[in-house]
Amino acid sequence: MAQISPSRHGGVDPWRDFDRLRREMNALLGNFGSASPLASGHRGVYPAVNLYETDDAYVLTAELPGVAGDDIRVLVEGNTVTVEGARQVAYADEEGVSLHRRERQSGRFRRAFELPAAIAADAVEAVHRNGVLELRLTKTPEAQPRQISVKAG
């Protein structure tokens, strides 16, 4: 018998569920919009990512809790970035240990992203902090905005 169990919250409120569904649909439609620079159809593909842009770089973040830095591989080629690795959730199979609840998944992952501009492969910074991978992908000089000075005629 489980001695520790997550508490349930209240009853079911169909309107609340409907509202949540509507918001999730909007979020999904937003994500799949044609404006998205990443390949569409990410649903279910691991890991989910967020992409940001600065003048000189793209910043790609992914939540990878419990994945050791050594278990993540990042490959950059042209304007394609590939993130692959494995998340290992394993518990010692000792006598007297029982698993009451199992929600955390383990397995392998591999995902490639095509960025809107070319990346300088030798200037990629990868930091894995608090279970979040942060890739700073510097654009090639040709892909960075340039300030054009205007001279008086």
Binding site: S36, V49, N50
Partner: peptide
């Protein structure tokens, strides 16, 4: 612990 940097312009969000 840390929100995204204020200077980052969001392009795409999945989570």
């Amino acid at each position: 612990a840390a929100p995204p940097d204020a200077g980052w312009r969001p392009l795409h969000a999945e989570y």
